[in-house]
Design a binder for these strands. Structure first.
Length: 833
RNA sequence: GCCGCUGUGGUGAAAUUGGCAAACACGCGCGACUCAAAAUCGCGUGGCUUUACGGCCUUGUCGGUUCAAGUCCGACCAGCGGCACCA
């Protein structure tokens, strides 16, 4: 009997996370706790008063289910949202799935299920998991990128891009992933390998669709400083856009030395026109040499072979990163417009066809690459910029001097500072100042199946007549807006062909279509668009998911945009986060939205590792959140994830660490269910409470969740030690609510709360109560701590000195005369002997 | 090579403007409860030294500024991330 009694109480007292979490989650949905006031079209005025758009990068539903890394990011975002909601904002925290793309398609291929079928399975599983982590999502506004009602508008954006001249087709060397069997954008190649599958990327010459993001390079760069974003992401974008100021300068070419023909010219781009007098040779890229050959340049067989070899090598799959420069003299001479010197033109692999103009003037004395080449091929080196550290002219250089200085060997420009000479020499040689960017246009087409078909039609008849929707692209028409979406056909064999043609090309019924202009037999574009286009506008659709007339309503965007807080991984610094800004700028220019920067504030969360190692399937150390939620509860896992390290830094997940948080929550539960309150909290407890309010509030705002949790622990320690009144306990629960939303809500109800704690106002601290009347006065002698004594706040130096002298140990060290005393109010006193 | 970030106990980490280094936890040790164990609770826990009070040392390394440096400055070392013949 006694045993049963004890067991009964044991189970009653222990926190049953499964039961409580399920109950709270059900209640939240029923009461619509997290549904924002997104008004129906007619009554915009009646909507949210203090809108706060709290967005988290939506996940792609991977086969393995929700990764703990996803949960880490989502929890961090959710805590911020819950905090803002309790502060009185109408928080909108939507969720959806970025379900189109190679990742999902590859998984479908692997298990032999159609991606559309698999999508439904993953969707269900993902949403279930996303419910279980306890986030305050607005479930009514969810979206999936593979939903025709969504990609209808993705396609619509494409057609508008085409009409605006921002989407175009071009044949050029592009990145090709042999494993994914599709082309990739530059942003999707990381260190020469495919961002997704890590396969070495090769170059292929293909005709592809591009978005003209480079037209926005200047704006994308210019806006960066004003964005409240994590610095590392802003820096990455700045480097990626890579602005360089320089000059475009034309050189005459002499096919035969000493015989100007006035016909042949070549343009070069340089950021150092000040060094022009030092240009002792010119280098053209193999790509440009190839073009010359194509228009009839009669070159040696050796030269032709060199060009062909280098071009072949650039296409090859081996990633040999030799820094050894090769090259061949072309037999042609260029005339340096600065001093009319005839300089040899070389062809070398160290000059790239798609950078600058594909040709350079080489100044070996002031560019290390030119220097190396000149040394290797015995070309003269001429110094024209004298470093400030050097008094007389230098006779030999062991390396190029790339800094600024004063010009020498430059005729009438001698003595001029290199910075001024840039402009002066450019003018002298008839050059034109120019700005170039590293950024290149966004390669948007993909030769895969699982994506939105590019909504374009090509009519050969129109092409032959040189007519079309756009003068520069005869034969091409956007699918009329009324015909959207161009639905992705259900195909049995959706395997990538690897030939540069999308699997959709084999679906005759799909590709055969009538020309929208002349009605002749035409064909559809069969490539699909890059997944990153899907995610480049999803934040707009969230606020208007049910709109069947437009992608989104402008009045709503005015109310909810820009996104107030965006959280995600920094791996998207030059992918998603760049594309999304570009698309926003375009939409702004079309008058569809008012702000050209979509995210007011962006914070990158850190990376989670496990026991000191990167999580990976092969290591078998991937943390499955489902298991932990089952064992410890979502609240415990959430809180542990936030406690283990600073959110923006990322941290090390250790199983042992879960114990501390579980213990903490059990203690809170015991405290909250026992409900043994004192009539009035002691000063100590009251102060602990107010300090916790202050600290937790400040820390959440700054995303310092780890120290916010520790502040809660300190507060609980005080409550347990001294006992607390009911109000103190309620305040404590509110502070804990963003971190452990289920338990906080349950205990809140048991303490008599009528509505959900997540709709309660966030506490505000009383500065007077935070302050302590006493402080620890640090007594130093010659800078060394000799005593710590309790003192009244605000005491003057004389009183502090008296206290210090009264301390036996400190007194022991104060021998001789005091030369100087340093007194820092409410902190320390330091005697210098 | 260039740009950025990070180096603090056995572990994760904390530290406003330069003002007690190691908060809060984990782990460990000792103790209480228990026949016993788990759970729970209490105490201790950077190193060296001292019977004790205390003292000396300690934030990757070396140097500097300062009454005072984890924090500021200079040089270097290590690790992580990004870009990489960008003309």
């Amino acid at each position: 009997m006694i045993l049963w009694y004890l067991l009964y109480h044991y189970f009653m007292a222990r926190y049953d996370h499964k039961k409580v979490e399920a109950k709270r989650q059900k209640r939240w949905v029923k009461e619509g706790v997290y549904e924002p006031n997104l008004p129906r079209r007619a009554s915009l005025q009646a909507g949210a008063k203090k809108p706060f758009y709290n967005l988290m990068m939506f996940p792609y539903p991977s086969a393995e289910g929700l990764h703990v890394g996803n949960m880490y990011a989502f929890t961090g975002s959710d805590i911020y949202g819950r905090f803002k909601r309790m502060q009185g904002y109408d928080v909108f925290e939507p969720i959806g799935l970025d379900g189109f793309g190679i990742h999902s398609e590859n998984y479908a291929l692997k298990i032999g299920v159609h991606p559309a079928t698999q999508a439904k399975v993953s969707e269900k599983r993902f949403y279930k998991q996303l419910v279980s982590i306890g986030n305050g999502f607005a479930w009514n506004e969810r979206l999936e990128t593979y939903d025709p009602e969504y990609y209808r508008w993705t396609q619509w954006i494409f057609t508008r891009m085409f009409k605006a001249g921002l989407a175009y087709r071009k044949r050029q060397e592009v990145n090709w992933c042999p494993s994914c069997k599709t082309v990739l954008a530059d942003e999707q190649v990381e260190g020469g390998v495919c961002e997704r599958c890590k396969t070495q990327v090769i170059k292929k010459e293909l005709e592809q669709w591009f978005f003209g993001i480079t037209k926005y390079a200047e704006r994308l760069l210019r806006n960066l400083p004003s964005l409240d974003w994590s610095d590392n992401v802003k820096i990455a974008q700045r480097n990626w856009i890579g602005r360089s100021e320089g000059a475009l300068i034309a050189f005459d070419l002499n096919m035969i030395p000493g015989q100007p023909d006035g016909k042949h010219k070549v343009q070069i781009f340089t950021t150092r026109p000040d060094t022009m007098f030092g240009a002792t040779f010119m280098v053209v890229s193999p790509e440009l040499a190839q073009q010359w050959l194509a228009v009839g340049w009669q070159a040696d067989a050796k030269i032709k072979k060199y060009v062909a070899d280098v071009l072949a090598k650039r296409r090859a799959a081996d990633k040999e990163t030799s820094t050894k420069k090769t090259g061949i003299f072309s037999g042609i001479y260029a005339v340096n417009p600065a001093n009319k010197d005839e300089i040899p033109v070389w062809i070398s692999d160290y000059v790239l066809g798609d950078v600058g103009t594909g040709a350079i003037m080489a100044v070996p004395a002031h560019d290390q690459r030119d220097f190396d080449f000149a040394r290797a091929f015995n070309i003269s080196i001429k110094m024209v910029v004298q470093p400030p550290s050097v008094k007389e002219g230098l006779f030999s250089l062991s390396e190029a001097y790339e800094g600024e200085g004063v010009l020498v060997n430059s005729e009438k420009f001698n003595g001029m500072r290199s910075e001024e000479a840039k402009k002066a020499i450019t003018e002298q040689v008839g050059g034109k100042t120019d700005v170039r960017y590293r950024l290149r246009d966004w390669l948007i087409s993909r030769q895969r199946y699982w994506g939105p078909p590019i909504p374009m039609i090509y009519c050969e008849a129109c092409a032959a007549r040189k007519t079309g929707e756009r003068a520069d692209m005869p034969g091409w028409y956007a699918v009329p807006e009324g015909d959207l979406p161009v639905k992705l056909p259900l195909m049995k064999d959706f395997r990538p062909s690897g030939t540069g043609v999308s699997p959709l090309a084999s679906a005759q019924s799909f590709s055969q279509v009538k020309c929208p202009a002349c009605g002749a037999k035409a064909r559809r574009e069969t490539d699909v668009s890059d997944t990153f286009l899907d995610s480049a506008w999803y934040y707009l659709r969230y606020i208007d998911v049910a709109n069947t007339q437009k992608p989104f309503d402008k009045a709503r965007t005015e109310k909810w945009l820009p996104v107030d807080m965006y959280i995600g991984g920094s791996e998207h610094a030059v992918l998603h986060l760049l594309y999304v800004r570009f698309v926003a700028m375009v939409l702004k220019d079309w008058g569809l939205i008012d702000c050209e920067e979509p995210f007011k504030k962006f914070r990158a969360h850190g990376l989670l590792i496990k026991e000191g190692a990167k999580m990976s399937k092969s290591r078998g150390n991937v943390v499955n959140p489902d298991e932990y939620i089952k064992r410890f509860g979502a609240d415990a896992l959430r809180m542990y994830l936030m406690f283990l390290a600073p959110f923006e830094q990322g941290g090390d997940f250790r199983d042992q660490g879960m114990a501390g948080i579980t213990r903490f929550l059990e203690r809170v539960w015991r405290c909250g269910t026992a409900q043994k309150f004192v009539k009035m909290s002691s000063d100590d407890v009251r102060r602990a409470r107010e300090q916790a309010v202050k600290k937790v509030t400040e820390d959440i705002e700054a995303l310092r969740y780890n120290t916010a949790v520790s502040a809660l622990m300190i507060c609980l320690n005080a409550i347990e030690e001294h006992g607390a009144d009911k109000e103190t306990c309620k305040t404590f629960l509110k502070l804990m609510a963003p971190f452990a939303p289920h338990m906080a809500d349950e205990l809140w109800e048991r303490l008599g709360g009528k509505k959900s704690i997540h709709r309660e106002p966030w506490p505000v601290h009383d500065e007077a109560l935070v302050r302590e009347e006493t402080f620890d006065l640090v007594v130093q002698v010659n800078g060394k701590v000799r005593a710590v004594v309790k003192a009244q706040k605000g005491i003057a130096e004389a009183q502090a000195a008296a206290l210090a002298h009264a301390d036996a140990n400190a007194h022991k060290f104060i021998i001789g005369t005091i030369k100087k005393t340093i007194f820092v109010k409410d902190r320390l006193i330091n005697f210098i002997m």
